[in-house]
Design a protein around this nucleic acid. Sequence first.
RNA 1: GGCUCGAUGGCAGAGUGGUUAUGCAGCGGCCUGCAAAGCCGUGUACGCCGGUUCGACUCCGGCUCGAGCCUCCA
Length: 457
Amino acid sequence: MKLYNTETKIKTEFVPINPEHVTMYVCGPTVYNYCHIGNFRPPVVFDVLARVLRAKYPKVTYVRNITDIDDKINAAAAEQGVSIAHISEKFTQAYHDDLAVLGVRDVDVEPKVTEHVTEIHQEIQSLIDRGYAYEAQGHVLFSVASYSDYGKLSKRDPEELLAGARVDVATYKKDSGDFVLWKPSDDDQPGWDSPWGRGRPGWHIECTAMAAKHLGDTIDIHGGGNDLVFPHHENERAQSTCSHGAKFVNYWLHNGLINMNQEKMSKSLGNVLLLKDLAKEIPGEVIRYILLSAHYRAPLDWSDDVIQQAKSSLERLYGALRKMVDVDVPSDIGNQIPRAFDDAMSDDLNTPKALAELFALAKQANTATSIDEQVTIKAAMMQSGQWLGLLQQDPEVWFSGDRDAAQADEIERLIVERAQAKADKNWARADEIRDRLSAKKVVLEDSANGTIWRIES
RNA sequence: GGCUCGAUGGCAGAGUGGUUAUGCAGCGGCCUGCAAAGCCGUGUACGCCGGUUCGACUCCGGCUCGAGCCUCCA
């Protein structure tokens, strides 16, 4: 398959270091608050990538970390008068709950920073030993000037990064672009003993330590939102390369951001839509569909219009599947994923094009005349849907929306009554029942095989 | 200011040097008791100005506008 690499700025054939084992690292959340929909674009996008890779390679190890050491967590704990662990555990759980709503599969390893302080110490020591880092006033800093390749990932001029007059330069820094690997903690701040005194890790070294421990010095794919390119990934690249003396990442993948009213959705801007809130309004699968309806590198504008369109689009796909509920797909049918779908997914994860292939299958399903045809189409839709993490629900469940069994029974009872009215050619009564259900957002669909219902989207 | 990226029909969103993206919405038809769903048909879309070319939405240059990064941020 082909992937676009941020570092080389071109799309190239993906060649793993070990064809038997693909390695992938994605930056996870800092657990100090609930996550918004923008935060979930990387987990969803890279979940899809992992699914495709697992279909194509014998083994994939996908690592996504939890950042549970951070000054924002400390601040939240202090503000709420609870322990730091309480905050990080609470929001780690919330994150997992949200991922489940979106149908994101578990990663292979989900390392926590608190469990990797020793590894972080080792990385820092290695950087000091190799002459890339220095100690100053209780801090350990990475010396940007010591690494000639610095700035290459984010296409930044190293001279400018060194000089960088924009921010107040801390007195202990040799160059303003130098960044912290270890910083001292006051008595009232959380800290870990280290060769450089009691303190806590800087903002970038954790990923270096965790990626190295779980995936090795050189990894195939590293992903994240494109707002992480600088400084986070640039710094990770510098740390890992200098600490291990090896290339860090072969393919850097970055997703575009989600916009809210033409502006990036971000916690600092305050224009966020929390996933847990949105999920009360619309199914997680609709959110996932929206996230996959644009190419992952393109920006995505969030709007009510987009939500409505996604609902209707998914209805079309589930509608085709619903017509084939009685079609049994043999478990040994083998790979039925259409070539065009595979090609689209293999072309730098072109999910919009892949979805178009899914709609082509839906049309085939709606016009199929034989069971044999339907078996093949249904298998193709289900397997393709699995790559995207869509269409895996029972269509009946999907169309019944938020109605419980008792409500469904009542609807069925009215449908039976209406069927009798229709048989009696009592159209007034039949329409009255339909209108009554319509008022409750239940839409009826008559067919040769009887009447089915769905919840209005 | 510097560095990246983008500008496609009412909306969302792929793609291509000369042929239908796809979906949503709309319109006409079929089906239906009427609907809904589905099917068939339907839209003179490619920011602006130049250039290259037999031919450009697609390549090149300039411009305008928008977004991201340059500070924590997915």
